[in-house]
Design a protein around this nucleic acid. Structure first.
Lengths: 159, 159
DNA sequence: TGACAAAGTTAGCTATACCTAACTATACTG
DNA sequence: CAGTATAGTTAGGTATAGCTAACTTTGTCA
């Protein structure tokens, strides 16, 4: 097996990995400053996290340099991003939540769901999409269902 | 407004609240020992958490006594339990995940999802249930859809 | 090229949430 | 009702994850 077994990462470190991955296009890797901005943490917190990621063999980073992911780090990052995208899609495309809200919720939930549920969720999205092609649009039908009920509830409410 | 505004609780404290709530039937409130067992933490960790919950006005607890929830604490606990149940139902009844797995996933995810998504999820479950009454069982149909694809994938695989 | 701004690091602090070990209070039981 | 087992607490320690402030390094440009 690999050098270090893929020990479970904290939600926080997964977030760093995801951020580095998403900033990686920028010439030669991600900048610490941008990671901090993306995650809304202090620059010094990034320095600390990078040290941990390097120790775990997931990131490459020499002082004052750009950050890149190792193969292993990139594999983990891709998995996080995949979860993120699946959740966002489910929240937005199936449940009909506003994209921005869906994004943020996905970012928080992505660390808590295992492969079994993520797999089924992906499958479910595909099923809903397929339903659209088969002439019955489940997502659209649900929006109506939800909208109707929501309207009923809210009618006459001040707050 | 109330004495203390309903400041956001940590996932951990929400878990304690939920455990206390679920153990509350037992004569005169929950026992520290049982809370520890339910959450899989040391008894001393419970003592610490109870102190925090009391400080926040969510639990009642005098040393060596049983633990009960205040009105406010019970309200929060009910909301956590509600989320938990909605998620469990979605994972199990819609996605078709084994109940035990669904339970555990719900327990982890329940702290990360806000009212908007929880509300829609509840609505979606109702929609799926209603679909069953209307002659098209979405949950059952999805199980077939997922099962078919899963079978294809796994066919011939050793692991 | 030298000064200054921006980026990155270090040191030290805080808070959460656990733990173990040792102690104390309570409850049960012969 | 005394002794022991069980439950609960306290003290002190660890790990994570963040922060600010002060410092160093790097890069830019007049």
């Amino acid at each position: 097996m690999g050098t270090e077994r893929t020990q479970k990462l904290s939600a926080s470190l997964e977030d760093y990995l995801e951020a580095i991955f998403n900033l990686a296009d920028d010439a030669g890797g991600a900048r610490s400053k941008d990671i901090a901005a993306m995650l809304g943490v202090a620059r010094s917190s990034v320095t600390g996290a990078l040290q941990l990621l390097c120790d775990k063999g997931l990131a490459n980073h020499e002082p004052y340099g750009r950050v890149t992911l190792t193969q292993q780090g990139e594999a983990v990052a891709r998995e996080v991003v995949r979860k993120h995208d699946i959740l966002t899609s489910f929240f937005a495309d199936v449940l009909g939540v506003e994209r921005e809200t869906a994004q943020r919720a996905a970012c928080r939930a992505e660390h808590t769901l295992g492969p079994e549920i993520i797999g089924r969720l992906l499958s479910f999205i595909d099923y809903v999409v397929a339903s659209g092609r088969d002439g019955r649009d489940i997502a659209g039908e649900f929006r109506l269902f939800h909208g109707r009920r929501f309207t009923k509830r809210v009618k006459g409410m001040v707050k």
